[in-house]
Each structure stands twice: as structure tokens, then as C-alpha cells.
Design a protein around this nucleic acid. Structure first.
Lengths: 223, 223
DNA sequence: CTTGGTCGGTGACCAAGTCACACAATACCG
DNA sequence: CGGTATTGTGTGACTTGGTCACCGACCAAG
């Protein structure tokens, strides 16, 4: 993991331009943390005191609703910052969103105080942070648009295409897909049956195999 | 309008603690602008070069979708900052959200350059900005939750209670309410008929009169 | 008074979410 | 190893919400 500790800053597009002195502050002021898959990186009510910059793995940010269902809000990938923890850090409000490590995760944790100093002293760091915020906000806009206007079959098709690995397998139960899209498990089951009927997929327990991407892609494009 | 120009900073909770020198910079670096109701304050594709702090009026931030319908994302009220313009200012991405003045609006416009300096030099200003961001993000979370899990009748009832003036009148057409809630006009018409049938409201052209708030409030609470 | 535009109402239909099951595959455990 | 619990999936009946196609009522301008 030492190679990570050395030059992790360059993994972030927006930080590459940082001058040497700020880099040094950032490196010495932060520490590298690793957590296993499934860890709650942050949770409702808990005030975060570190900004996380993801070096490896993905974090799923979701909202747990009163009715017991979850909605996926967005994913944070390696090379992105988990700006929601910033929000937690700096704002008085406590969120009802939680972050869960989907895979094993390695991240650079920047304490509140260091973060504040970096924002004050580096315009590049400022831009990095604000860009991260805007990306999240636009992601949320897109999500809302999707939820309101897009048909479920199209949303599911495009999600399957996203989640499929190189061999065309998607490792996910119907229930997981339902929570990804903020819908009910039954709806996923039915839509998948339909996809199967059309010869686009094959179903296994806990897994879906895409038989070519053409059909699904056409459905997605057809909007 | 001169009384506004003098002490507008104190209208913002988060800015009251600003030290005198920063205040002076903020005041001299910004200017007061007024626009009539209906003005597009910002729009997709246009890169904003001012952060707006609303002194009077409200701005409706909405997303215009490909299907021709609009969704209300949130409202910015007097005493709040329109942080989306910040996002536009600082980020490379161009938004598909637009801001429309719902009433005549007076605002303090802070140019990009001044904004950046203030963020660098004042921790209080920093906190103000980040707090604004977090509030928007949580608002969006709540909206998503609402859309996904809440029944339309409940959402409409609570919106009517919000929008009603002291005399219990809501000045809005069914079409407007539909776009507020991201649904179709017909759905609003039906739900309002149902509310009328229950004796909760009276309908006029372009206007709704609440006959007491108890029924609606009970529906909202019943969730 | 016409005419065109806005506003609201309605029925038929489709898409999606809910509820209540049933049943198969797998995991666990004595 | 076999039995039981848990998890994953399938399905029918029903409700809610969104879409489409229309209509008639109101309103303002000429």
C-alpha cells in the first residue's frame, strides 16, 4: 500500500496542479485509511470530521426512508471525493443519507481543520472541492429527472449495461436492483422476465447474463 | 432601496459574524441588482459569473426535461444564497437547471473573483457557502425521498398548506401545481376533486380556497 | 359578439407499486 | 447426512399514478 501513500494526490484530476507546499501540507495532514466491504463510511446523525478522497473501491450513498426501502443516490468512485462528508463536516444539519463501502475501500482522510486550511490557502483545492459539489448536485438533478420521466424498463436496461462486467454478467439480486432504482422487487422481476422473453438476458440465481448488448442498448436509445 | 444597500449583510444569518474588514470587501465588491418577476436569473448552458444572495423575493429553480415537462427542484428565498450559480461559476459542467424569479427580486451579486477572495480570507464566509451547499443537497435528498415514497395526495396536501396565504387562498392553476410536484395536470385535477368531495377545499378558476386546515393536515400526518 | 387561448373535467388505457402468496435454491446446523 | 431456515424469484389481484384524447367553460382582445 506504500505506493499509494506516496503519490495518491495525482490520482485526482483536480489536484494535479497543486503547488509543492500545498501538496506537502495535504500529504502530511491526511492519512490513508482502509476499510473492508460493507463498512458504513458515514451514517445519519453522525457528524463526520474527515473528508474522504477515494483511492480504491466504491462507496454507495443511499437514503434510508421511513417506509423501509432504500434509494441509491449516487456512487463515489476511486478518484472522486466524498463531498457529502464535507457537507456533514461543515454544516449544522445532519443528514439522513448513509455511505456504505461496496468493495474494500482505501481513502485519504483529511481532517476538518486541514481541509479548512487547504480551502483557505489554495485556489486549486477550492476549485476541486466546488467542482465535486457541483458534480454531486448535477448527478442528483439527473437522478430526479430519471425518476420522474423515465420508464422503468429503460432505467433497468441502462443500469444492467452499466453493471455488467466484461463477460456480460451482472452480479445482483432483483432486490438489489430494485433498491438501485428506487422501485419494488416485483417490478424488477417482471421487467427482467420481459427482457428474457425478448432474448436479451439469461437469469441465474443472484446473477444475470446479458446475451449481447444490442437489444438493451436499443431500448435505452429509443427514448 | 438605499436602506437595503446599507445593511443587507445582516439579513443573512451566516454572515452576521463577519469581521469589519471582510464586510467592507463584500460590500464594496458586490452590487445590488433588481429584476422583475419572471426573469430568468440563470439558465442552462450559461456560465454564471455572479453569486446571488437574495435580499427580496423568491427564485424558483427547476429542471426542464426532454419530455417538455418541468420539475421544481427547490426555491431560494430572501436571506438565502443561490448556490447553484456558484456551482455554475466554479464548475466546468453546464447545468440543465434554470432559475426563474417568481416575484420581483432584489439580490446582491458577488462577482466570481470577489467570491473566491472571500472564501479564501474568511472562515465565516466559507462556512456560509458550504452550509448553503449542504442545505441544497439535503433538500434534494428530501425531494427524491418524497417523489419515490410519498403518495401524491399527501404531497399535494402539504404543498397546498405551504402555499396558502393567511386567508387560506392558494393562487395557482392545476398546471402550476403539477409542475411543482413533477406530475401531470390531470392527476392534480383528480386529487383536488377528491379534496373538494371531502369538503376540504373550494375551487375557483386559477385559485383554491382551503376550508380549514384540519383535513389536509391530518392527511399529511397520517403517513 | 366572435374568436382564440387558458383552465379545468373526464373516460379509457397503460405503467408501476403494493399485497399476499407460493415455491425453489441455498445455507446452516445438529 | 437430512431437515429446517433463509434467501431469491414468480405470479395474480388490486390500487395508484401517468398518458392520451377529447370537451366544455371561462376570459380577454378585437
Amino acid at each position: 500500500m506504500n505506493h499509494l501513500a506516496d503519490n495518491w494526490i495525482d490520482r485526482f484530476q483536480g489536484l494535479r496542479g497543486l503547488p509543492a507546499d500545498i501538496r506537502a501540507d495535504l500529504k502530511s495532514g491526511s492519512r490513508i485509511v482502509s476499510v473492508p466491504a460493507g463498512t458504513r463510511v458515514f451514517e445519519p446523525g453522525q457528524s463526520a470530521d474527515n473528508l474522504l478522497l477515494l483511492l480504491e473501491g466504491t462507496v454507495r450513498v443511499q437514503h434510508h426512508s421511513a417506509t423501509g426501502r432504500d434509494v441509491l443516490l449516487y456512487r463515489v468512485h476511486a478518484g472522486e471525493s466524498c463531498v457529502l462528508t464535507t457537507a456533514c463536516m461543515l454544516a449544522f444539519e445532519n443528514y439522513s443519507a448513509e455511505g456504505i463501502a461496496e468493495t474494500a475501500v482505501t481513502a485519504a482522510a483529511i481532517p476538518r481543520k486541514v481541509f479548512d486550511e487547504l480551502v483557505a490557502h489554495s485556489s486549486i483545492f477550492r476549485e476541486f472541492v466546488f467542482t465535486a459539489y457541483s458534480r454531486r448536485i448535477t448527478d442528483l438533478f439527473t437522478l430526479i429527472d430519471d425518476i420522474v420521466f423515465q420508464r422503468m424498463d429503460v432505467r433497468l436496461a441502462s443500469r444492467l449495461l452499466e453493471l455488467a462486467n466484461a463477460e456480460g454478467y451482472v452480479h445482483a439480486t432483483h432486490a438489489v436492483l430494485a433498491s438501485e432504482l428506487g422501485t419494488a422487487r416485483e417490478v424488477i422481476s417482471r421487467t427482467l422476465s420481459e427482457f428474457h422473453r425478448r432474448g436479451w438476458i439469461e437469469q441465474l440465481r443472484g446473477e444475470i447474463r446479458l446475451l449481447g448488448r444490442e437489444g438493451l442498448e436499443q431500448l435505452v436509445r429509443s427514448v
